[in-house]
Protein backbone atom coordinates (compact mmCIF):
# COMPACT_ATOMS: atom_id res chain seq x y z
CA UNK A 1 0.00 0.00 0.00
CA UNK A 2 2.81 2.34 0.92
CA UNK A 3 4.45 1.70 -2.39
CA UNK A 4 1.23 2.46 -4.18
CA UNK A 5 0.89 5.80 -2.45
CA UNK A 6 4.52 6.51 -3.21
CA UNK A 7 3.96 5.62 -6.82
CA UNK A 8 0.93 7.82 -7.02
CA UNK A 9 2.97 10.75 -5.76
CA UNK A 10 5.60 10.12 -8.34
CA UNK A 11 3.23 10.58 -11.19
CA UNK A 12 3.46 13.98 -12.67
CA UNK A 13 0.33 15.85 -11.87
CA UNK A 14 -0.49 17.22 -15.25
CA UNK A 15 -0.51 13.76 -16.77
CA UNK A 16 -3.31 12.87 -14.47
CA UNK A 17 -5.16 16.02 -15.30
CA UNK A 18 -4.96 15.26 -18.98
CA UNK A 19 -6.04 11.70 -18.42
CA UNK A 20 -8.91 12.55 -16.14
CA UNK A 21 -11.68 12.97 -18.73
CA UNK A 22 -10.79 9.68 -20.37
CA UNK A 23 -10.54 7.95 -17.02
CA UNK A 24 -13.93 9.15 -15.96
CA UNK A 25 -15.31 8.04 -19.28
CA UNK A 26 -13.79 4.56 -19.11
CA UNK A 27 -14.89 4.10 -15.54
CA UNK A 28 -18.43 5.23 -16.27
CA UNK A 29 -18.86 3.33 -19.53
CA UNK A 30 -16.85 0.17 -19.02
CA UNK A 31 -15.56 -0.43 -15.53
CA UNK A 32 -18.56 0.49 -13.45
CA UNK A 33 -21.09 -1.60 -15.42
CA UNK A 34 -18.65 -4.49 -15.36
CA UNK A 35 -18.21 -4.37 -11.59
CA UNK A 36 -21.95 -3.90 -11.18
CA UNK A 37 -22.69 -6.95 -13.29
CA UNK A 38 -20.18 -8.99 -11.30
CA UNK A 39 -21.75 -7.83 -8.06
CA UNK A 40 -25.37 -8.52 -9.03
CA UNK A 41 -24.44 -11.95 -10.38
CA UNK A 42 -24.16 -13.07 -6.75
CA UNK A 43 -27.73 -12.08 -6.01
CA UNK A 44 -31.21 -13.23 -6.82
CA UNK A 45 -32.30 -10.00 -8.39
CA UNK A 46 -35.39 -9.62 -10.52
CA UNK A 47 -36.09 -6.14 -11.79
CA UNK A 48 -39.81 -6.66 -11.97
CA UNK A 49 -40.11 -8.20 -8.54
CA UNK A 50 -42.68 -6.02 -6.77
CA UNK A 51 -40.78 -6.18 -3.49
CA UNK A 52 -37.44 -5.39 -5.16
CA UNK A 53 -35.57 -7.68 -2.81
CA UNK A 54 -32.02 -8.75 -3.53
CA UNK A 55 -31.11 -12.01 -1.88
CA UNK A 56 -27.45 -12.92 -1.65
CA UNK A 57 -26.87 -16.31 -3.28
CA UNK A 58 -23.09 -16.54 -3.43
CA UNK A 59 -22.08 -18.59 -6.40
CA UNK A 60 -25.49 -20.24 -6.80
CA UNK A 61 -26.23 -18.42 -10.08
CA UNK A 62 -23.02 -19.74 -11.59
CA UNK A 63 -23.65 -23.27 -10.34
CA UNK A 64 -27.18 -23.17 -11.74
CA UNK A 65 -25.81 -21.93 -15.02
CA UNK A 66 -23.58 -24.95 -15.48
CA UNK A 67 -26.41 -27.32 -14.62
CA UNK A 68 -29.05 -25.51 -16.67
CA UNK A 69 -30.12 -27.63 -19.62
CA UNK A 70 -31.03 -24.52 -21.64
CA UNK A 71 -27.63 -22.95 -21.06
CA UNK A 72 -25.86 -26.12 -22.14
CA UNK A 73 -27.95 -26.27 -25.28
CA UNK A 74 -27.26 -22.60 -25.96
CA UNK A 75 -23.56 -23.11 -25.41
CA UNK A 76 -23.53 -26.09 -27.77
CA UNK A 77 -25.39 -24.02 -30.37
CA UNK A 78 -22.91 -21.19 -29.92
CA UNK A 79 -20.00 -23.54 -30.54
CA UNK A 80 -21.64 -24.84 -33.71
CA UNK A 81 -22.27 -21.29 -34.86
CA UNK A 82 -18.73 -20.16 -34.07
CA UNK A 83 -17.18 -23.17 -35.78
CA UNK A 84 -19.47 -22.83 -38.78
CA UNK A 85 -18.95 -19.12 -39.30
CA UNK A 86 -15.24 -18.94 -38.56
CA UNK A 87 -14.16 -21.83 -40.79
CA UNK A 88 -16.31 -20.81 -43.76
CA UNK A 89 -15.48 -17.13 -43.42
CA UNK A 90 -11.75 -17.78 -43.26
CA UNK A 91 -11.95 -19.95 -46.35
CA UNK A 92 -14.15 -17.61 -48.32
CA UNK A 93 -12.22 -14.55 -47.13
CA UNK A 94 -8.91 -16.07 -48.21
CA UNK A 95 -10.41 -17.16 -51.52
CA UNK A 96 -11.75 -13.70 -52.24
CA UNK A 97 -8.47 -12.09 -51.28
CA UNK A 98 -6.49 -14.33 -53.63
CA UNK A 99 -9.01 -13.86 -56.41
CA UNK A 100 -9.19 -10.10 -56.11
CA UNK A 101 -5.66 -9.19 -55.09
CA UNK A 102 -4.63 -7.89 -58.50
CA UNK A 103 -4.38 -4.11 -58.60
CA UNK A 104 -6.50 -3.57 -61.68
CA UNK A 105 -9.30 -1.09 -61.77
CA UNK A 106 -11.94 -3.79 -62.08
CA UNK A 107 -10.63 -5.63 -59.04
CA UNK A 108 -10.58 -2.44 -56.99
CA UNK A 109 -14.12 -1.79 -58.02
CA UNK A 110 -15.31 -5.29 -57.09
CA UNK A 111 -13.43 -5.15 -53.83
CA UNK A 112 -15.02 -1.93 -52.72
CA UNK A 113 -18.47 -3.25 -53.57
CA UNK A 114 -17.81 -6.40 -51.61
CA UNK A 115 -17.34 -4.28 -48.51
CA UNK A 116 -20.97 -3.20 -48.58
CA UNK A 117 -22.41 -5.98 -46.41
CA UNK A 118 -20.05 -5.01 -43.61
CA UNK A 119 -21.40 -1.48 -43.66
CA UNK A 120 -25.01 -2.58 -43.10
CA UNK A 121 -26.12 -2.95 -39.48
CA UNK A 122 -26.46 -6.68 -38.64
CA UNK A 123 -30.04 -6.16 -37.52
CA UNK A 124 -30.97 -4.88 -40.96
CA UNK A 125 -29.03 -7.69 -42.57
CA UNK A 126 -31.03 -10.14 -40.46
CA UNK A 127 -34.37 -8.61 -41.43
CA UNK A 128 -33.47 -8.54 -45.11
CA UNK A 129 -32.44 -12.18 -45.07
CA UNK A 130 -35.48 -13.13 -43.07
CA UNK A 131 -37.66 -11.92 -45.91
CA UNK A 132 -35.36 -13.39 -48.56
CA UNK A 133 -35.63 -16.77 -46.82
CA UNK A 134 -39.39 -16.67 -46.30
CA UNK A 135 -40.67 -19.83 -47.89
CA UNK A 136 -44.05 -18.41 -48.90
CA UNK A 137 -43.09 -14.97 -50.14
CA UNK A 138 -39.27 -14.91 -50.31
CA UNK A 139 -37.01 -14.79 -53.34
CA UNK A 140 -34.58 -17.56 -52.49
CA UNK A 141 -37.21 -20.28 -51.91
CA UNK A 142 -39.03 -19.12 -55.03
CA UNK A 143 -36.07 -19.96 -57.25
CA UNK A 144 -35.12 -23.05 -55.30
CA UNK A 145 -38.66 -24.32 -55.74
CA UNK A 146 -38.45 -23.66 -59.47
CA UNK A 147 -35.35 -25.84 -59.46
CA UNK A 148 -37.40 -28.56 -57.86
CA UNK A 149 -36.14 -28.40 -54.28
CA UNK A 150 -38.59 -29.30 -51.55
CA UNK A 151 -38.00 -26.71 -48.86
CA UNK A 152 -40.56 -27.86 -46.30
CA UNK A 153 -41.00 -25.10 -43.75
CA UNK A 154 -38.27 -23.01 -45.33
CA UNK A 155 -34.58 -22.55 -44.60
CA UNK A 156 -35.20 -20.83 -41.27
CA UNK A 157 -38.18 -23.00 -40.34
CA UNK A 158 -36.62 -26.44 -40.58
CA UNK A 159 -34.52 -27.53 -37.63
CA UNK A 160 -32.12 -29.24 -40.00
CA UNK A 161 -31.28 -26.13 -42.01
CA UNK A 162 -31.92 -23.20 -39.67
CA UNK A 163 -28.41 -23.10 -38.22
CA UNK A 164 -26.82 -23.37 -41.66
CA UNK A 165 -29.10 -20.59 -42.90
CA UNK A 166 -28.06 -18.15 -40.17
CA UNK A 167 -24.43 -19.11 -40.63
CA UNK A 168 -24.81 -18.20 -44.29
CA UNK A 169 -26.13 -14.77 -43.31
CA UNK A 170 -23.15 -14.22 -41.05
CA UNK A 171 -20.85 -15.50 -43.79
CA UNK A 172 -22.33 -13.00 -46.21
CA UNK A 173 -21.87 -10.15 -43.81
CA UNK A 174 -18.41 -10.84 -42.44
CA UNK A 175 -16.37 -12.59 -45.14
CA UNK A 176 -15.42 -9.21 -46.64
CA UNK A 177 -13.75 -8.26 -43.37
CA UNK A 178 -11.52 -11.33 -43.62
CA UNK A 179 -10.93 -10.56 -47.26
CA UNK A 180 -9.55 -7.16 -46.25
CA UNK A 181 -7.38 -8.69 -43.55
CA UNK A 182 -6.00 -11.28 -45.95
CA UNK A 183 -5.46 -8.70 -48.67
CA UNK A 184 -3.37 -6.66 -46.27
CA UNK A 185 -1.47 -9.83 -45.43
CA UNK A 186 -0.89 -10.71 -49.06
CA UNK A 187 0.39 -7.24 -49.88
CA UNK A 188 2.96 -7.40 -47.12
CA UNK A 189 4.44 -10.73 -48.21
CA UNK A 190 8.08 -10.54 -49.32
CA UNK A 191 8.68 -11.31 -52.98
CA UNK A 192 12.03 -13.10 -52.60
CA UNK A 193 10.68 -16.54 -51.61
CA UNK A 194 8.44 -16.52 -54.67
CA UNK A 195 11.31 -15.66 -56.96
CA UNK A 196 13.39 -18.40 -55.40
CA UNK A 197 10.53 -20.88 -55.76
CA UNK A 198 10.03 -19.98 -59.37
CA UNK A 199 13.72 -20.58 -60.04
CA UNK A 200 13.30 -23.98 -58.37
CA UNK A 201 10.41 -24.74 -60.68
CA UNK A 202 7.55 -24.70 -58.17
CA UNK A 203 4.11 -24.40 -59.75
CA UNK A 204 1.41 -22.04 -58.51
CA UNK A 205 -0.22 -24.56 -56.24
CA UNK A 206 3.09 -25.49 -54.67
CA UNK A 207 3.92 -21.84 -54.17
CA UNK A 208 0.56 -21.30 -52.50
CA UNK A 209 0.83 -24.29 -50.18
CA UNK A 210 4.49 -23.93 -49.26
CA UNK A 211 4.99 -20.20 -49.27
CA UNK A 212 1.82 -18.16 -49.14
CA UNK A 213 0.01 -20.17 -46.48
CA UNK A 214 2.91 -20.45 -44.03
CA UNK A 215 3.73 -16.77 -44.45
CA UNK A 216 0.09 -15.83 -43.93
CA UNK A 217 -0.11 -17.84 -40.71
CA UNK A 218 -0.02 -14.85 -38.34
CA UNK A 219 -2.64 -13.05 -40.41
CA UNK A 220 -4.70 -16.19 -40.32
CA UNK A 221 -4.47 -16.26 -36.56
CA UNK A 222 -5.57 -12.63 -36.28
CA UNK A 223 -8.59 -13.26 -38.47
CA UNK A 224 -9.42 -16.45 -36.63
CA UNK A 225 -9.34 -14.89 -33.18
CA UNK A 226 -11.12 -11.72 -34.21
CA UNK A 227 -14.01 -13.57 -35.81
CA UNK A 228 -14.17 -16.17 -33.04
CA UNK A 229 -14.65 -13.43 -30.50
CA UNK A 230 -17.29 -11.71 -32.53
CA UNK A 231 -19.10 -14.93 -33.33
CA UNK A 232 -19.25 -15.90 -29.68
CA UNK A 233 -21.10 -12.69 -28.99
CA UNK A 234 -23.51 -12.97 -31.91
CA UNK A 235 -26.94 -11.60 -31.15
CA UNK A 236 -28.46 -9.28 -33.76
CA UNK A 237 -28.53 -11.70 -36.68
CA UNK A 238 -30.17 -14.39 -34.58
CA UNK A 239 -32.60 -11.92 -33.05
CA UNK A 240 -33.74 -10.67 -36.44
CA UNK A 241 -33.92 -13.98 -38.32
CA UNK A 242 -35.03 -16.85 -36.09
CA UNK A 243 -35.33 -15.48 -32.54
CA UNK A 244 -33.44 -18.62 -31.58
CA UNK A 245 -35.95 -20.92 -33.25
CA UNK A 246 -37.23 -23.25 -34.48
CA UNK A 247 -37.51 -24.57 -30.96
CA UNK A 248 -34.07 -23.86 -29.57
CA UNK A 249 -32.09 -24.83 -32.65
CA UNK A 250 -30.41 -21.48 -33.07
CA UNK A 251 -30.59 -20.15 -29.52
CA UNK A 252 -27.02 -19.02 -28.93
CA UNK A 253 -25.72 -18.08 -25.51
CA UNK A 254 -26.02 -14.34 -26.00
CA UNK A 255 -29.61 -14.69 -27.17
CA UNK A 256 -30.43 -16.81 -24.15
CA UNK A 257 -28.89 -14.17 -21.89
CA UNK A 258 -31.06 -11.57 -23.57
CA UNK A 259 -34.17 -13.62 -22.90
CA UNK A 260 -33.28 -14.14 -19.27
CA UNK A 261 -32.37 -10.50 -18.79
CA UNK A 262 -34.78 -8.60 -20.99
CA UNK A 263 -37.85 -10.83 -21.02
CA UNK A 264 -37.76 -12.20 -17.49
CA UNK A 265 -35.74 -9.25 -16.14
CA UNK A 266 -33.93 -11.85 -14.07
CA UNK A 267 -30.84 -9.67 -13.81
CA UNK A 268 -28.79 -11.65 -11.32
CA UNK A 269 -28.86 -14.82 -13.38
CA UNK A 270 -28.44 -12.97 -16.66
CA UNK A 271 -25.39 -11.20 -15.24
CA UNK A 272 -23.88 -14.52 -14.20
CA UNK A 273 -24.41 -15.92 -17.70
CA UNK A 274 -22.99 -12.77 -19.27
CA UNK A 275 -19.92 -13.03 -17.07
CA UNK A 276 -19.33 -16.60 -18.19
CA UNK A 277 -19.47 -15.42 -21.79
CA UNK A 278 -17.19 -12.55 -20.85
CA UNK A 279 -14.54 -14.92 -19.49
CA UNK A 280 -14.60 -16.96 -22.71
CA UNK A 281 -14.29 -13.88 -24.87
CA UNK A 282 -11.68 -12.33 -22.57
CA UNK A 283 -9.44 -15.39 -22.91
CA UNK A 284 -9.75 -15.13 -26.68
CA UNK A 285 -8.96 -11.44 -26.66
CA UNK A 286 -5.88 -11.95 -24.50
CA UNK A 287 -4.69 -14.49 -27.06
CA UNK A 288 -5.49 -11.98 -29.77
CA UNK A 289 -3.47 -9.24 -28.15
CA UNK A 290 -0.58 -11.64 -27.58
CA UNK A 291 -0.59 -12.62 -31.24
CA UNK A 292 -0.68 -9.02 -32.34
CA UNK A 293 2.21 -8.08 -30.10
CA UNK A 294 4.22 -11.01 -31.31
CA UNK A 295 3.76 -9.87 -34.87
CA UNK A 296 5.15 -6.48 -34.10
CA UNK A 297 8.34 -7.90 -32.62
Amino acid sequence: MKRLVQALRNVERHYLLLLAPLLVFVVAIAIYPLLFSVSISFFKYRLTDPTQTKTFLGLANYITAFQDEQVRKALANTLVFVFGTVTTELTVGLGLALLLSAETRLMQFIRSWLLMPMAIPPLVVGLVWRSLYNVDFGVIPYYLKLLGFDLGRGPLGESATAMAAVILVDLWEWSPLLMVIFLAGLKSLPSEPYEAARVDGANRWQRFIHITLPLLQPVFLVGLLLRTMQSFKVFDIIYATTAGGPGTTTTVLNYHIYTVGMTFFNMGYAAALANILLVVVAILSILYVMVLEQRQL
Binding site: V135, D136, P141, G157, G245, P246
Partner: peptide, 9 residues
Protein backbone atom coordinates in the same frame (compact mmCIF):
# COMPACT_ATOMS: atom_id res chain seq x y z
CA UNK B 1 -50.82 -29.38 -42.07
CA UNK B 2 -53.21 -27.16 -43.98
CA UNK B 3 -51.32 -23.90 -43.46
CA UNK B 4 -48.67 -22.43 -45.78
CA UNK B 5 -45.42 -24.35 -45.28
CA UNK B 6 -43.68 -21.32 -43.83
CA UNK B 7 -46.36 -20.83 -41.17
CA UNK B 8 -44.18 -22.25 -38.41
CA UNK B 9 -42.16 -19.09 -38.97
Amino acid sequence: DYAPPGATD
